[in-house]
Design a protein around this nucleic acid. Structure first.
Lengths: 188, 188
DNA sequence: ACCTGAACACCGTTCAAGT
DNA sequence: ACCTGAACACCGTTCAAGT
């Protein structure tokens, strides 16, 4: 069989979701595609690049149209909630996206969304950037932890998801309150 | 030579700081101590446990006495700034501490400090926990990113540290503002 | 363009046996 | 108590060669 870049990413997503990030190896993925591991290097320069493509695909698949920009706070919440749900949709999704982001590769859609929303809210370039990064760090950190514990509790994990979501929203509201306060003191 | 647990941690810290987390392998550490890799398993059940001990040691060495608890906000800032400095003191320190924390092993001193400070500020158990976790996620996320870029710029990295610190404090102030607002609305 | 086959230089971990 | 030596079951990546 002969594959294209997107076929490899598709299969990588399946391996990730079924066996987890630790088992998403070049050799394992090659075996899954009935191909030598070295064949993957025709499609990706290295594993990091493959992982970046996987992260981008996780976010792309979780994409949902943003609501009307009536309220900048609602918009920020929508972006963060959407980001959380996209990452939760795949096993170890948060770790993959966070790692790739930390490495500086791809997956800059959310950063751009948050940044432009905050600038549109009148936050000033430097503060908007800092606020966007603060929000992202919170989201990545919270969801990574959440997902780790979710998987530790394995099977009956659907039960306590509401508690985790309200926890997520509480922390998010904390950061958002801080941003609003700064915004008001700027506009006053 | 015969070593004790603390000797191994000490040497692991040196290897970490000189060669980075990627090169802190059981085999490499064994070689550094002139010992078979298998000998390390007499001191630690596995690599995770060793890494947890390393993380704890990084935090312990960065420990500085907290200022008088006159102001709960100043106390929170002191804990977070201290945490940042402790992690920055070792190459890849933030990644080590964050990883160990995500895994649920050791390094719960900061969580406890923040939690008790926030409860003492009158925040209520559940909100105090959420706020402490939010702060920690921010600190880990920011410092990890900061340290990655610091090391990417390698040599002349001392130059732009002030900018990074003020950036860190700005984001921290954002979260802190959110916490203060919630606290005031509770006490009102 | 996409893949094979073989190799290089590594990993973490286990376990019987030694002192 | 602490370590050796050997093994098991893996890694990511490179590269000449094939179709």
């Amino acid at each position: 069989m002969r594959y294209r870049r997107t076929d490899v990413v598709e299969r990588a997503l399946e391996v990730l979701d079924r066996y987890g990030l630790a088992d998403l190896t070049m050799r394992r993925l090659g075996a899954e595609l009935d191909v030598q591991p070295s064949a993957l290097y025709h499609h990706f320069a290295n594993k990091q690049t493959l992982l970046a493509a996987v992260a981008d695909e996780i976010l792309a698949r979780g994409q949902r149209p943003l609501p009307d920009p009536a309220d900048w706070e609602q918009r920020v919440v929508a972006v963060c909630v959407g980001l959380r749900e996209a990452m939760l949709a795949y096993r170890d999704g948060a770790e993959v996206v966070a790692t790739v982001h930390a490495f500086g590769l791809g997956a800059d859609g959310p950063t751009a969304d948050l940044g432009s929303t905050l600038r549109a809210a009148g936050l000033g370039d430097s503060l908007a950037r800092t606020a966007a990064r603060t929000l992202l760090h919170y989201v990545f950190g919270h969801v990574s932890e959440e997902q780790t514990h979710l998987q530790a509790g394995s099977a009956g994990a659907i039960a306590d998801e509401p508690r985790e979501e309200s926890d997520f929203l509480t922390g998010l509201a904390l950061v958002l309150d801080g941003i609003r306060l700064r915004r008001e003191s700027l506009a006053h």
